[in-house]
Design a protein around this nucleic acid. Structure first.
Length: 196
DNA sequence: CGGACGATTCTCT
DNA sequence: GAGAATCGTCCGG
């Protein structure tokens, strides 16, 4: 089943970061590789609000080779390596304001055989229920750094409207003072592919 | 150039 | 729930 995915326009990314983080829920993340197409519905995101957010890589306008892309246009791809895993973000806010939204989980939608192969040895429920897992399942790598989500091979397209969105504390950032408690993690209620 | 440090995952117990 | 794996990036010397 080959679906037709029309990328969301760049204007979609020109909304406030916290709002965009919720708007992304239900959208489809698609990656094209030589092996074929793999796609999943976004079911969990986390917002990182740049200079004022102690938990963000770009806290204090920290500008390095890694964080550079966050200072550019919204709608770009921010990937980075954590331990041995690649994590993928959506750059948001205006150029000069380094905000980003981490995609924490997706629900497998297309290219299931491909994902199964890439996540061999794991049950389907564990293919994409974490930021490092979904990049492996979809084939997202550092090659995607700096690209736009409006053109292949990495695209975000319109999906469905979630029935209910829940907000809570972000995960894995316990040593960041007050930023630890900001409720900037969003997920689709009761979706089985949410990471926790 | 060496060392510390994760927005994680997996494998046990 | 704890601990190891494992590696690019960043910063100090």
């Amino acid at each position: 089943m080959k679906m037709d995915y029309t990328p969301l326009p760049l204007s979609f990314y020109e909304q406030p970061t916290l709002q965009l983080a919720q708007a992304l829920l239900g959208c489809v993340l698609i990656k094209e590789t030589a092996e074929g197409i793999a796609a999943g519905s976004i079911v969990e995101t986390e917002a990182y609000l740049g200079p004022e957010d102690r938990a963000a890589h770009s806290f204090g306008n920290r500008r390095t080779k890694r964080t550079e892309v966050m200072f550019h246009e919204p709608g770009r791809v921010y990937t980075y390596v954590m331990h041995t895993h690649c994590l993928v973000n959506v750059v948001s806010s205006s150029p000069g304001t380094p905000h980003a939204i981490l995609i924490r989980a997706v629900e497998p939608l297309e290219g299931l055989d491909l994902m199964s192969e890439r996540r061999k040895g794991h049950p389907m429920k564990n293919w994409t229920n974490g930021p490092g897992k979904l990049t492996k399942a979809l084939g997202i790598t550092m090659e995607d750094y700096g690209r736009f989500y409006t053109e292949p091979p990495l695209v975000i397209a319109e999906g469905f409207s979630p029935e209910e969105i829940v907000a809570g504390k972000r995960i894995g950032i316990d040593n960041t003072g007050e930023a630890r408690d900001y409720p900037w993690r969003y997920w689709i209620k009761d979706n089985p592919f949410v990471s926790k």
